[in-house]
Each structure stands twice: as C-alpha cells, then as structure tokens.
Design a protein around this nucleic acid. Sequence first.
DNA 1: CAGGATCCCGCTAGATACTG
DNA 2: CAGTATCTAGCGGGATCCTG
Lengths: 139, 139
Amino acid sequence: MPSMSAAERRAQAKVEYDAFLAGCPSRQLLDRISDKWVALILAALGTDEGEVSGALRYSELSRRLAGVSQKMLTQTLRSLERDGLVTREVTPTVPVTVTYALTDLGLSLQEMMRGIKGWAEAHMDDVLAHRQEHDTRTA
Amino acid sequence: MPSMSAAERRAQAKVEYDAFLAGCPSRQLLDRISDKWVALILAALGTDEGEVSGALRYSELSRRLAGVSQKMLTQTLRSLERDGLVTREVTPTVPVTVTYALTDLGLSLQEMMRGIKGWAEAHMDDVLAHRQEHDTRTA
DNA sequence: CAGGATCCCGCTAGATACTG
DNA sequence: CAGTATCTAGCGGGATCCTG
C-alpha cells in the first residue's frame, strides 16, 4: 500500500507528528504508553536471562505484575494488541491457553520501558532523600 | 551480546527495589513518572538545539505543552520538584519570574522521556496501521 | 506573572459475580 | 484458565475565581 520507503515515512512523520500539540495523534499515543501497567507489561514480556521466547501466559503475567486487577491487565493487553505492540495467541487446549508476546514494534518500545523501570529502581534512594530534604525544609 | 548490560548491572547493584512488587516504593515512583505530563515536561526542559540552559518560565512551559491545565502543570511541577527532578527558582522581579530547570537527576530521566516521546511520534503510522487492520479484522 | 483555592463532573480503577 | 459483565466509589482533572 505505501509507495514510500520507511525512511521517507519517518522523515514525513517527523514533521507531521508532534506530541507537544494537543490534537496530535502522537499525544494520545504518548498518553497510552505513559502508563505504569504498559511499562510493567512490556518490561515483563520479552526475553529474560535463560528464556528463549519472552511469551507469557495470562496467569503468569498477572502473577508477575503484583497488584494488577484482571480488568486492568486485560484492558491494557487488549489496547497493546490493537496497537500492534503485542500478539495474543489462543491455543485451544482445555482449559484454553492464551499467550502474549511482543511484536517487533513492541520490542523496540520495551527497551525504553525497561530503562524507565530500571531508572525508577536505581534512583529510588536519591528520590527518597530529596523528598525528605524537601519536606523538612518546607515543613 | 555483551556479558552484562548496563541495566543488568544496575539491577544487580540495587536488588532491594523491584517495581514488579506492589508494595515497593519504586512502583509508586514508576507510576509517578509514567505520566504524559511528566514525559512532556521533561522533554520540554533541558537544552534544545541552540539553547544553552534549558530553563523555562512557567508561562513558556504552559505554552509548549499545549492543552495542559494550570492545575496539572503546577501539580506536576511541584511533584517533580519534591522528587528532586527539577529546580524551581523565583526571581523577585515585579511581576515575579519563576523558572524551572532540570537537575542532574532529572536530566538522566529526560533522555529516556525524549526517547519515549520520539518513539510515539516515529511509530505513529505503524500504530495507526495496526489499529485499522485490527479493527477491520474484528469488525 | 505565577500560581492558590474551590467546586464539581466524569470516568476509570477496583471489587464482585458469572462463563466458555 | 482466561476472561466478560456490572456496579460503584473515589479521585483525577477541568473550569472558575481569587491573590501576592
């Protein structure tokens, strides 16, 4: 369908999309992926040490993302699937088996999401220290 | 593949925090920074091409982040300041001048946030295409 | 100019119950 | 197992008005 190369599309996209603009579609996309569950799901999927495929079953995902409700997990997964970031594969065993995996697109975002998650964990102490200092100073 | 990535080394160094756990402080921190306004504010602050200091005034920020309400902008800035990601400097001119700038901590996060924002803009077309294909297939 | 304070609506997350 | 359906409470977030 597109008679344009990927590079050309990217070049066009650079001028067409700007998340600083309220009406821009990329603003909505940014809003979608700026979600803790998105970050955690993407971080959980994909290959960890030792694993070959990063595919996970629904129950396994809900176990890893401690505290997520079924609703939010399903909802987030559906939206990620719709946006082409994850694939949903149903194996008609009984009971049914559903596995989720990252697409190439999802994989490209996963790296950043793991970076964010890693940042939060790595700088937690700094942030905690800043908060205490800030709170006592303004107390 | 390198024997150990930077993320893996960080994870090893800080085993105490794990955002996958519901009660972990880093989960709350992840939730905080997983916010579209945080992403946009951090992306807006910091040096652009040509600029020396990335400091911005309140009004300039609200102009760049089209569609943000005063409440959310102030609220987000306060929380970022409390967490030590931005500094708030009041110059007692009349009328008063308030400028916001990134701390070193904020700067380290900014790079990732710009990455996320850039990703959203760069892959908008892919996502849009996936959505259409998905919607027509499930129609 | 850079907010603080207040009111209030919407929607979304969470809990619960049910199903193929 | 992997969801769907429904209901509700809570709060995120916008609109508005006010101030140093």
